[in-house]
């Protein structure tokens, strides 16, 4: 799949933002006044900024409001509904903390749940697609998004113990996702024989593409460039995203280590998310003899 920068930034940043909102909603930490304002500003900058970024890849962003309507069938629609609900509820909770110095806790709990649900729905947009076997690993893909979001959220919220544990958990899920993902296309059963239905006659080979030029399908769904360095990039993503932050957290606490842990983690998540798209094979590539 084509790794569009707007979607990579959106899923990574909003994942972190909603993760932070989750911990803020639960009351870990429960900052008031100016400190609270800064905490919520960061969370909203990441969560809502990410959402805004995601509209940049739309053909018609001005119609984006329509995307709220089909929550009964569409995970993308559910994501929109959950995101707006989470931002509104957490906004009210933040209002209490920042301006009235009081925690309206039920709102926080609801907001935390909605924040988590938003990340879950985002992951299902990808997890539901049978056409991309590497993403269609349930419940592993939602587990990956949720564990990354929670680990990043705990890190941003300054919950050192939780962050360490969740980073280790996310690292394990990430490795499992990579290892199992490498077998997903083959075990999906889709190949040129099933795609053409001609496998019973003999070995099928793509002889001639429909056009000499490229097309939307190839540029959107058959991305091969990034895979050449996939292994090196996985190592970089793992080192930055999990190993370095955990090391920084294990050092005696210092705000500088905290900031470095966050920066390393965000960079690692961005690389991991880039690979999430670049490595994913769409079955339509089979028709073109590519993957």
């Amino acid at each position: 799949m084509h790794p569009a920068p707007s979607i990579i930034l959106f899923t990574s940043l909003s994942g972190l933002g909603f993760g932070l909102l989750f911990f803020l909603g639960l009351g870990y930490p429960q900052p008031t006044g100016w400190v609270g304002f800064v905490f919520f500003l960061i969370a909203y900058f990441l969560a809502a900024g990410g959402l805004l970024l995601s509209t940049f890849h739309l053909g018609h962003p001005e119609r984006a409001w329509r995307a709220m309507s089909q929550w009964q069938s569409s995970w993308l629609s559910r994501e929109g509904v959950c995101a707006v609900a989470a931002l509104v509820v957490m906004g009210l909770y933040a209002l209490g903390l920042v301006f009235f110095d009081s925690a309206w806790q039920p709102l926080g709990w609801i907001g935390a749940l909605l924040s988590l649900a938003t990340v879950g729905t985002t992951s299902m947009i990808y997890g539901q697609l049978k056409t991309v076997p590497r993403w269609n690993m349930l419940p592993l893909t939602p587990a990956l998004f949720l564990s990354l979001s929670l680990a990043g959220g705990a890190l941003l919220a300054g919950q050192v113990t939780w962050a360490t544990g969740l980073l280790v958990l996310a690292a394990l899920v990430q490795v499992a996702w990579w290892v199992l993902g490498d077998k997903a296309l083959v075990s999906s059963g889709s190949d040129l024989a099933s795609a053409t239905g001609l496998g019973a006659i003999g070995d099928v080979r793509a002889f001639e593409p429909p056009h000499t030029g490229t097309n939307y399908l190839l540029s959107e769904m058959v991305h091969v460039v990034g895979r050449a360095h996939a292994l090196k990039l996985r190592a970089i993503a793992f080192g930055l995203g999990f190993v370095l932050p955990v090391l920084f957290l294990l050092l005696p606490f210092n705000h500088l280590w905290g900031v470095l842990a966050v920066l390393a983690h965000v960079a690692g998540v961005l690389v991991s998310r880039w690979l999430f798209f670049a490595e994913a094979e769409h079955v339509v590539g089979i028709y073109y003899g590519k993957r």
Binding site: G59, R63, M221, Y287
Partner: peptide
């Protein structure tokens, strides 16, 4: 008139039957 051009339907189709029009931004 209701299509926002998100492209998710093209991702969901295994056959490559849907193509986003680059000029119009709709599927």
């Amino acid at each position: 008139d209701h299509c926002i051009g998100c492209g998710l339907c093209a991702w969901a189709c295994p056959y490559g039957a849907r193509e986003m029009d680059a000029a119009e931004g709709v599927m």
